[in-house]
Design a protein around this nucleic acid. Structure first.
Lengths: 295, 295
DNA sequence: ACGATCGATGCCGTTCCGGAATGGTCGACC
DNA sequence: GGTCGACCATTCCGGAACGGCATCGATCGT
């Protein structure tokens, strides 16, 4: 068995072809170097160096071994470096689950900021139903998850990363589209399209409460899983909807958005397990500090 | 500095996640293994293993280091194996110079046999003027060279690898082409095409002597470097020639070959330096043992 | 023929490693 | 809740390995 110290000895000798200088480079004296080289040759059963007292030359096997040993040494150094980088959260991967809506709002700036700041960390993004996020975070398949704020965090840590007002999505042919902005009261009697209760309970209740406070009895006609589906249905004239403002990026024929006066806000939150040891997770959270303004 | 033994320790632990079993696999007891792991973590300044007395788990850095360490270990084993293979002449390269004529005769079977028997050795073939072979072998740019036998071997070792009779190349329209075979005497007065004196002195003298013995005064009209050029010129009707029989593979319009009765033979020889240490060289020479019959 | 250079060898003090025994902690089980 | 068992950490000790010093032997240049 040839260990790394012996390889270092041999590489130094192969570089200098001179026992004295090689020993000097290795911060040792010449005799132990001679012994190390002899030990390698004995271990391999192969003569690596042709030496007479005047000249040192590598054999074909020595030339080959020098190359290979160099590769082993750099690989070993790389291994140590990588361990330190992984410990510092600068190498590895983070698995993040996100609800589809986040793909239009918080995920793009998060991805840009994080990958720019930590190029060594692979950010693995997994589109996930909001209801499945807690379980997947708890069992470790995900390091973090992005969804709307919920009341029951299943013991997970959380932090608000984005706060956006709701706005009104309505068919562009609708009578109300003539107004630059709308009040909740104007939506009385309108058929509504909304996210299903179990998919985004907080968003659903926010909409519900806001309408009730304006004296409007919500008349939810259609339920979907995705905000994207909501605006598609609205564009088809099947109702109106209150959606997060970032949905305005999604434009469709027959679809209009209007500001909602005194609009309530909906918060996007990132969840993670407190005892998650992935060193890259704190880096991810740090990258999310200032997303709100950017998105 | 983490050495290979420590990496072996860590990999065993990463595989088993159990100090006792890992130590058993390493043929040692548990306490020194604990120390080695602790030493690695101290050397790296990174916690690689989360252990309580109940469960052992790798950290992200540990997971990464386990993978990298495995790669380093296999690279180290490969390095040792390669050194042994190189020593045995089963890994590396051999540089062989050859005169052009050999490309039609000895080189193809040599290449086939050698590469089949020693797939790890790269056979580098260099077309070389015969006169340049000795110098390039002596200065080490070539491990061996293939040419016609010469008298002055410049102190090189040599071995005959192919012996072939000469035959007559003549224009197919020539009167002598009516005979199935020819005697040297029939070539009296014919203009000859032959290789230049300094290119292949032995071949040249063999032809010369054979004709003289038959009472024919050689009348060499054209001189070339390549046997291939000779038959091209013969095909153009510019003369007749005596060429090695393997040239019969080269067929050209207007060109005919005829057996030469009591034909002298010309030998191809491989040359090498006795003190050449390339372990693949003996393998090459061994592969040439039985080429004669095959070619 | 002599000196200088260079690698190999003998010897010694120190360090490092592995083994055995022991300690300490946590979970399981009665 | 107390005891037992599993498991990793710590301590101590004997042996092997390493590096430094002094020296030898061979070779080349002067």
């Amino acid at each position: 068995m040839v260990d790394l110290r012996q390889m270092r000895c041999f590489v130094a000798l192969a570089d200098t072809l001179h026992f004295g200088r090689a020993a000097q480079r290795l911060h040792m004296t010449q005799p132990p170097l001679s012994r190390q080289i002899a030990a390698i040759e004995k271990a391999l059963g192969v003569r690596l160096v042709e030496r007479d007292s005047r000249r040192v030359a590598l054999t074909a096997a020595g030339l080959r071994f020098a190359d290979d040993a160099r590769a082993v040494l750099t690989a070993a150094e790389q291994a140590e470096r990588n361990a330190r980088l992984a410990h510092a959260g600068e190498l590895g991967e983070v698995h993040v689950g996100f609800m589809m809506h986040a793909a239009h709002s918080s995920v793009p700036p998060m991805t840009r900021r994080f990958t720019a700041a930590h190029p060594g960390v692979a950010l693995r993004l997994h589109e996930t139903f909001p209801a499945e996020l807690p379980a997947r975070i708890l069992d470790g398949r995900l390091d973090a998850g992005i969804g709307f704020r919920v009341d029951d965090t299943h013991g997970l840590c959380s932090r608000v990363i984005l706060e956006e007002p709701l706005c009104v999505a309505l068919p562009s042919a609708h009578a109300l589209s003539g107004h630059a902005s709308l009040r909740a009261g104007q939506l009385a009697g309108e058929p509504l399209v909304a996210v299903a209760e179990d998919v985004a309970p907080t968003l659903r209740r926010t909409i519900h409460d806001h309408l009730l406070r304006a004296g409007v009895a919500p008349d939810i006609r259609l339920e979907t899983h995705l905000q994207q589906s909501i605006v598609s249905l609205v564009a088809e004239g099947l109702g109106v909807a209150l959606v997060p403002s970032s949905m305005r990026r999604i434009t469709l024929p027959g679809l209009a958005y209007r500001d909602l006066e005194d609009a309530p806000t909906i918060e996007q939150v990132i969840y993670w397990r407190r005892d998650n040891l992935n060193p890259a997770l704190p880096r991810l959270l740090a990258s999310l500090e200032a997303i709100d303004g950017e998105a």
